[in-house]
């Protein structure tokens, strides 16, 4: 029983990572109708930036904040310089560009920071013996707290701020948004920036568990896709819930059903199952257009 509880809690902890990346994917998807396949590799690259800062002597949380800001700038720059030109392009081009970015960031990570697997520090290492009676590690608890706070911040931003409202408006109806004076292009860029920041936090939080290498986030990205789809690819709230759910499913499934060697197959099974059973996802409001 305690093993089951342990697996569930630990699943929720990684689920927070999936939820953050899923939310990043959904934010970009809602605004552009395109999936950013490079989201994971961008996050890995951000995590390398954080490690470089920490190794240069910057205190952990300062490096954390700086990385979030730099990632935001990176996301904004990519949208402004590259993706904006692809806004009207067909699906193939949009997927192509994001695959191109995936390859470039993956190679850049390896080229600039090396292919050897690196340790990444955790800010919650003090109680390494575990908390809650040894059920979860200090880092797992800390990273769950960070991701939950992050998700609440994003929720508050969209719900209560003027810019957040403008971004929701622009994602739903770009033409009317321009008519009320919103610069839709900039909301897209800011959305990309926020998505990159979310990914960066996810990367920094997961790196102490899985260690840092250029392919660190490729599995996470798939689970995040599965989570986003499960919750509803058009629904940020659903994506977050879906991310947590996938974390738990992955952990329990890995522990009791398929074993760790087939964990990625679980992502395929979830994605396929959602497409077959409930394409709009658990919380998808809009009915998916059938064509």
């Amino acid at each position: 029983m305690s093993a089951l509880l342990h697996q569930t809690l630990s699943g929720l902890a990684t689920g927070g990572i999936y939820a953050s990346v899923a939310l990043a994917l959904v934010m970009v998807y809602r605004a552009t109708r395109h999936l950013n396949f490079a989201q994971g590799e961008m996050a890995t690259f951000s995590t390398y930036i954080a490690l470089t800062l920490i190794q240069a002597g910057v205190p952990y949380w300062a490096a954390f904040a700086l990385t979030v800001v730099l990632s935001f700038a990176l996301g904004v720059a990519l949208e402004r310089l590259l993706l904006r030109r692809m806004a009207q392009a067909p699906g193939l081009s949009a997927v192509g560009v994001s695959i191109g970015l995936l390859l470039i960031f993956n190679a850049l990570s390896g080229w600039l920071f090396g292919y050897t697997v690196k340790q990444f520090p955790s800010p919650f290492e003090g109680r390494s013996g575990g908390v809650l009676g040894g059920l979860v590690s200090g880092h797992e608890l800390g990273m769950t707290a960070v991701t939950v706070v992050l998700l609440l911040l994003v929720y508050g931003f969209f719900r209560f701020t003027r810019l957040g409202l403008a971004m929701r408006a622009a994602a739903g109806n770009a033409e009317s948004s321009r008519l009320v004076g919103i610069d839709v292009g900039w909301t897209l860029a800011i959305g990309w920036g926020m998505a990159a920041s979310l990914g960066a936090v996810a990367g920094m939080m997961v790196a102490p568990l899985v260690f840092l290498d250029p392919n660190m986030m490729s599995g996470v990205l798939l689970y995040a896709f599965a989570g986003a789809l499960l919750g509803g690819i058009d629904n940020p709230f659903g994506a977050a819930v879906g991310g947590f759910a996938v974390g738990v499913i992955e952990n329990l499934g890995g522990a009791y059903i398929v074993g760790t060697e087939l964990k990625l197959t679980l992502a395929l099974v979830i994605i396929a199952a959602v497409l077959v059973l409930r394409p709009a996802g658990l919380f998808g409001r809009a009915v998916v257009v059938r064509v």
Partner: peptide
């Protein structure tokens, strides 16, 4: 040009954006 998935209040606030 209604923002159909936002509330009436949010539509009005956007008007004053």
């Amino acid at each position: 040009g209604t923002f159909t998935d936002l509330t009436v209040e949010e539509n009005l606030r956007l008007g004053a954006y």
